[in-house]
Nucleic acid binder design. Structure first.
Lengths: 251, 251
DNA sequence: CGACGGTTTGAGCACCTTCAAGGAATGTGG
DNA sequence: CCACATTCCTTGAAGGTGCTCAAACCGTCG
């Protein structure tokens, strides 16, 4: 498989890579299961615009804008947020390299949420129009996107469970564990990483005030299960964190 | 279009109707945009199992079960819930006639949530395997399902916004308004309807205790903006409810 | 260096939960 | 059809979690 070969030539996170070949790019997630061969590969590359870079705070898309591109995140992290009529903000998701953004716009043709870079990021933009055209000859593209969407729904269900049934302390413990798993699955350290979100964003994501985030992180540190300075976290005791998340006060 | 014609022959909610033709059935939502003609129609009917009936409290599918069918709800209502490891339950959604259930299982091949009938319901079961086969000759099926999924994601984002940023009173007002809109869009009364969920389920859906639901509903009634007896609700003042949902105490 | 955003910490209080108990409605079995 | 069991709903009282407001600290960036 051409793609696999290409992937092998550029597997490291830092290396430059074509949109299709890079394992850390969401387009890979979309294309590899299709079993693309040499010809198709050229096709696929034709729909992927050259990568773009956004700086911290820049917005990829806003609610109401015409849905013209799907964004495949190659590096860095992005938050997506929904905003109510009266201006309250809920962070709906937090995305890292290898994930696709903008899919929820398919139904209405407009983006429903806002996507903001949390640090300098690099994305591949995939034009929906050309993707739709391509899908005529390669229908399985929609199937792969359907699977990705369905995965998103599953994650959303999890977040709802978190927001609806857990106390602040449990939510935050769960959040840290989730980050840990996510980093681990991408071959980064599971116990030491950098929070790219501010306390305020974490609070918004988890449905609590930023002060509460601060206080609970401090409490975790007193307990010894984490060490935290600025945005650098070290998880000292994952079991204990899990126990807290499960509301089992002591291990 | 054959489908449209069929639909016209059986438009009333009470009339018996084929799975494909019935406007109140989710399969319709899936098939009509495909522009199915006579031949395709036969194809489509071939994948839809004869309707099944579930009674109140019966479970359509559970987390972990093999994903073999998509359920199109023809009548009645269904709740979907997710359950955490320690047994806490979050109602993730509430579905009425015309909606599809089970799509979030596509990614993993297993259902991720539990679907329970809230009253006697009638569903069409669509076998995934046969749907996948059919999609080979009619690829747009996946596109339509992708759109439906993306709509689901949008709704989930809304619920997260509700759970994360609103106070109990606002959430409940929003919930009633949402129900009202949903009924209105299906040509039922927008101001008078029956709650098919228990107070407990509503509470779980909105992330609050059932007692809180009771108390706030009573407060709404005192204020005069709703009348409620048992599960029969009448919305007397939708504007006022909207104002409450927006945290604008007085109209 | 000064300004600014992000973070921490404190105090008081509001909202909502928990626990408890009684009443209404629904369903079940005799 | 009635008696009983069960679930659902309501209401009260007490207490805690987490919010708001406020102020100070820190790190970063121009």
């Amino acid at each position: 498989m051409a793609v696999a070969k290409l992937a092998r030539t550029a597997p490291s996170p830092q290396a430059t890579c074509t949109p299709i070949s890079c394992k850390k790019c969401g387009v890979y997630q979309l294309c590899v299961p299709l079993g693309v061969d040499g010809t198709d590969l050229a096709l696929l590359e034709s729909i992927v615009k050259r990568k773009e870079v956004y700086k911290r705070g820049q917005v990829l898309f806003r609610p109401g804008e015409r849905f013209d591109c799907i964004y495949a995140l190659r590096s860095g992290s992005v938050k997506t947020s929904v905003i109510s009529a009266d201006g309250r903000v809920q962070i709906a998701g937090f995305h890292v390299a290898g994930e696709l953004l903008g899919l929820s716009a398919y139904a209405s043709g407009q983006y429903s949420c806002e996507a903001t870079a949390l640090e300098t990021i690099s994305v591949c933009k995939v034009e929906v129009e050309r993707l739709d055209q391509l899908a005529k000859t390669m229908p399985s593209i929609y199937f792969e996107m359907l699977k990705i969407s369905s995965e998103q729904i599953r994650r959303d269900e999890e977040l709802m469970l978190l927001l609806g049934t857990r106390r602040a302390e449990e939510r935050l413990a769960e959040y840290l564990i989730g980050l840990s798993r996510r980093f681990a699955s991408r071959n980064y350290s599971a116990t030491q990483f950098r929070l790219s979100m501010s306390r305020k964003d974490i609070g918004s994501y988890l449905g609590m005030a930023e002060e509460t985030v601060s206080r609970i992180l401090a409490r975790f540190q007193e307990d010894g299960c984490i060490s935290i300075a600025h945005r650098e976290v070290h998880l000292n005791d994952l079991d204990r964190l899990s126990a807290i998340a499960r509301n089992a006060g002591n291990v």
